[in-house]
Write a protein that binds this DNA or RNA. Structure first.
Lengths: 215, 215, 215, 215
DNA sequence: GATGAATGAGAGTTCATTCAT
DNA sequence: TATGAATGAACTCTCATTCAT
């Protein structure tokens, strides 16, 4: 029965695209699939079904499932790196240079927005980052390292300006911040398209700046 | 090839155990395996090899790979629940009731120690918690919920005592705390058997209590 | 439609065998298949269909198609080596020690009979020996080397006894003999179960001994 | 990846050729490829890469991979047929008409030289001749038949002249000769561009004429 | 004519699960 | 109860062939 159904629905119309466009299309499809099924659970079948191409087409652009995954991670890494460059200068330009908490808030807001915009890619990263597959270890480590280094550097600047306590280790703080981001993304942002990013960013910055003590 | 080897060297001695003991033995083996390979990478072969049991025996105790995974999560959930009951009272008993930061520190210290003691189980949880598999969603959600609720409740008590700022939402704080815990465990505790738990707990409590502002 | 047919005819009865027996059965099936289809053309499907086992069963005994091929070649190599040991002594025992042509004839007869008995294996060797696949190069080279060395050694003995011309290089003669054997097998023996091996062996020995000159 | 490389470096210049020239070019490329990789290992990709032609172009000249293979075999068959016509007359012209061994030697020398000159084509024939593929059976059988018939006819002439023993069957001798040729080509000529063809031809003729008996 | 992106049947392989012993 | 040989659906990947440009 399913044989007949597939026979009827198949006979795909051949659609030609430039290699670059097809590649991007496949990366998009794979991101979508990986975000929903996870790397191992997802099959090439899912990806090509989503992209609407034949099996062989996939292997015209990527030599393996692994390769497209790396391509996705690199793609995101690139976007993040580019975004990173803009975050601080943008925050500074916003004229809050003298208000650290405002800087923290603006920065957090931008990060949350960035991942909200790249929901699927962010999901892939968060879901698979802890996967044990050693073939991907490198990509994820670099990604996380980049972020941690960025946060640590910014914190150090605050310390040098005498604004942040010098008793706090920058690297440790960077990781705590990463952990909080992960959780906020996982819990609130990625699950809810209408999450109030402003409120989350404000609360986070407030906590980071003041702690929980009632002064 | 390996067939011959096993035939020659093993010829497993039938070790009789009570059903409960067998079950526990299998859960322990599976925990060890899942922690190292991840749920999907790990095969039944790995588990039975570690347990020293035949293939069929596994299915005498668990109807599927999925089921033993759920059993592991439930097992841990139980341990955590039991541990949770002791954490606060223990902290209180320690006589720091009047020093909130000390309470936070002692509590964090206990949590870190708990997971350090259950390294493999903790690894399984952290690695697979973000797995998308909806069959596991429930177990993980409950686990996390339990922890979040516990943290939120404690924070609320601090607020009621006028020790913590009332502008901070308990639920949000609970999640931030969870995120920081995850990261500390992942980055420092689970990777390093000799991690300095005291220092980590102290730093965490200090940050939670004071934030990063230079007062 | 074929779906239904296969559904009806499938549901294989599960037949248990000892690993050794199953292994031999698979080697036999693969030899049969490779002899008829050639290594690359033949699929695992053909082998398991012939053996009447499931796909997975094959991989229980061989890790790859390549491996079972090597197993076949080794199997034959072993048989040949064992046969080689018997050929000459047997020929000598036959009491023809003083009649070189009779020795050549008896030896040829035995060789032809050996390959006639292992028709499929012989076919595999002859068909695939010239295959370019470098993964099999070694096995075949050894096989051929063994045979060539054996022939060369025997010829040298004849020379030392003053029975064979010393102007003929043993190694070259060994190869010429191999070439003739190949052709006889290919043309006459392997294609025709009723080939007159006595006649072929006699003609070959006659030619080797006397050449074609009318004395 | 290679996609980018080829895009950047190639952008193939449309080289216009007459259909016949294209066809020959493709046959040459395929011969080269098949000789090195074997029929099944070789891909259309290899052939078009060697020919510097697009995928579709190949199918403009040959309807299938199989067809170009047949074309190669026919091509060689034609060359051999043409060469055959010249061999004997040439040998005769050389004035050795009265010395049968010299005729054998000269003939062998010419054959060896012919295949040495068409090394790749010869390799293809020898490697694939034993391929089981029934689609190619015909071509190879004809090829071999032609050669065998030629050798048999010449031998018969020697017999009629009373120079060769009449007890030797011409057809059998023809095949023995073919077998020896195959082996010499395979072992010595095709592997070594500097093989001493004179020596090989002399040794072969000597053996054929005199056998191995010490007279 | 010529191109090369696209196709999809079919290959080899894996592994959770079953069942004869 | 315990065993481990056997199963087969599902997976990743290949490549001769097609066809829109």
């Amino acid at each position: 029965m399913s044989v007949y159904i597939s026979r009827m629905s198949s006979k795909r119309r051949r659609v030609l695209m430039t290699p670059d466009a097809r590649r991007q299309q496949l990366i998009a499809a794979a991101t979508w699939v990986f975000a929903r099924k996870g790397y191992r659970q997802a099959g090439i079948s899912d990806i090509i079904a989503r992209a609407g191409v034949a099996r062989g087409t996939f292997y015209l652009y990527f030599t393996s499932k692994q390769e497209i995954f790396v391509a996705i991670v690199n793609d995101i890494h690139g976007r993040i790196t580019r975004a990173l460059a803009g975050v601080d200068s943008a925050a500074a330009l916003a004229g809050h240079a003298t208000d650290p908490q405002a800087i923290l808030r603006a920065s957090a807001r931008r990060w949350l927005a960035f991942f909200a915009e790249h929901r699927d890619a962010a999901t892939v990263i968060l879901k698979e980052a802890s996967s044990i597959d050693p073939r991907f270890e490198k990509g994820f480590t670099e990604l996380r390292q980049s972020a941690a280094a960025f946060f640590a550097a910014r914190f150090k600047r605050l310390q040098e300006l005498g604004m942040a306590r010098s008793s706090m280790q920058p690297e440790l703080f960077a990781h705590l911040q990463l952990g909080m981001f992960d959780e906020l993304l996982n819990r609130f942002v990625l699950r809810d398209p209408h999450a109030d990013l402003d409120a989350l960013a404000a609360a986070l910055a407030d906590f980071e700046w003041n702690g929980i003590r009632a002064h």
